[in-house]
Nucleic acid binder design. Structure first.
Ligand SMILES: [Zn+2]
Ligand SMILES: [Zn+2]
Ligand SMILES: [Zn+2]
Ligand SMILES: [Zn+2]
Lengths: 151, 151
DNA sequence: CAATATTTGAGATCTAATCTCAAATATATA
DNA sequence: TATATATTTGAGATTAGATCTCAAATATTG
C-alpha cells in the first residue's frame, strides 16, 4: 500500500486542474477529499448518497462531472464489478490490483499478480495495441459462503 | 473454433428448457437461431433492433427474459466491453477467449492465452474461491488507429 | 472594478433494464 | 378431444443510472 498524505494528493489534483485551465472549486474539493479519505470501490449513486448523508452539498451533475475529471487525471479507475453501473476505485494511494467478487455475498478480494500482468502486456504487444487500461475480474463463491450453504 | 451445427445446438437448448420445465416457444426459437447464426458480441438493444429489421417479432421483455435463460444455460457469457450496458457473446460454438478493445474505433480482438487462464485459476485457488466466471478486458489503441492519427 | 470565462444546480431528458398483468399459448389430465 | 391448469407473451408503465440544458452563481482576467 503506497501511503500518500492528503496534502500531497490535493497538490497533485490542483496541478492537474491548473494544467487543464480548470479551477479548484469547493465542490471539487469536497468530492476529492471525501474519496481520498473514505472510498475505495464505489458507484456514483452510492457516492452521491454518502455525500448527502454527511450534508456535503454537491449536485448530482457536478458529482458525475467531477468523477470524469478524476478519471482523466488518473485518480480513478473504472472496475467492472457489475454490468449495469459504472464502478470506480480510487487508486492514487493503492498498488495496482485486480478483483475477485463473490457472487453470493458481494465481498471483494483484491489481489496483485505480476505474472498475470505480464501476460496482459504480452497479449497487447502481440496484437500491437498500446494499452490504456485493463481489467480482470474473477467471479465466484467465496469460502465463507460455501460453508454457510452446507449447514 | 469448435463448429457445431445448428441442429445439435437446438437440441441442447431444448434439453435445457425441458429440464427446467420450460417450453420451446416460437419466440425462443427465433432468438436462439438468430444468435447461433448471426451474433457473436452484442448488447440487448442491438439484438432487439436487428430482430426488428428482419421482421422477426419478439417483444423487448421476451428478448430480455430469453437472454437470461440462455445465460443460465451457458450459451451466453457476459463480457464487460462497456460500463453501462450488458454485453453478451454467444459461446456455444467458440473457444474460450478474452478481448482487446480499441477505444478509438471500437474494434474487438479476441485472444486465447493459456498462461493467463492459468493465473486466473491460481489466484482463485489461492483465495479459496470457486470460480463461476471471469473476464479480462484490455483497452487501448489499435495499430490502425495509431497510424491514422499520424497522417 | 468591470468584462469575460467557468462552474454549478435544478430539473428535463435519454437509455437500459425490469416489472405488471391481462390475454394468448402451451401442457397435462380426464 | 375437451377441459383445466400452468406458462409465456407483449404493450406499456416503471425504475434507475447517466447525461444534458441553461440560467444563475462564482471565479478569473485585464
Ligand atoms: Zn480494488
Ligand atoms: Zn492489472
Ligand atoms: Zn469474444
Ligand atoms: Zn478466460
Amino acid at each position: 500500500m503506497v501511503t500518500l498524505d492528503l496534502q500531497s494528493l490535493i497538490i497533485r489534483f490542483r496541478e492537474y486542474l491548473q494544467n487543464k485551465g480548470l479551477s479548484y472549486t469547493p465542490q471539487r474539493r469536497v468530492i476529492f477529499e471525501y474519496l481520498c479519505k473514505e472510498r475505495s470501490h464505489f458507484n456514483t449513486e452510492e457516492l452521491i448518497a454518502s455525500l448527502r448523508e454527511k450534508r456535503l452539498k454537491v449536485s448530482r451533475a457536478t458529482v458525475y462531472r467531477t468523477l470524469g475529471h478524476l478519471e482523466d487525471a488518473g485518480f480513478l479507475r473504472q472496475v467492472a464489478l457489475n454490468s449495469t453501473q459504472i464502478h470506480y476505485e480510487f487508486i492514487a494511494n493503492t498498488k495496482h490490483h485486480e478483483h475477485v467478487v463473490c457472487e453470493s455475498c458481494g465481498s471483494i478480494i483484491e489481489f496483485s499478480d505480476p505474472q498475470l500482468e505480464e501476460r496482459i502486456e504480452a497479449v497487447a504487444a502481440k496484437h500491437n495495441v498500446s494499452i490504456t487500461r485493463h481489467n480482470v475480474q474473477i467471479f465466484g463463491i467465496c469460502r465463507r459462503c460455501r460453508e454457510q450453504v452446507k449447514t
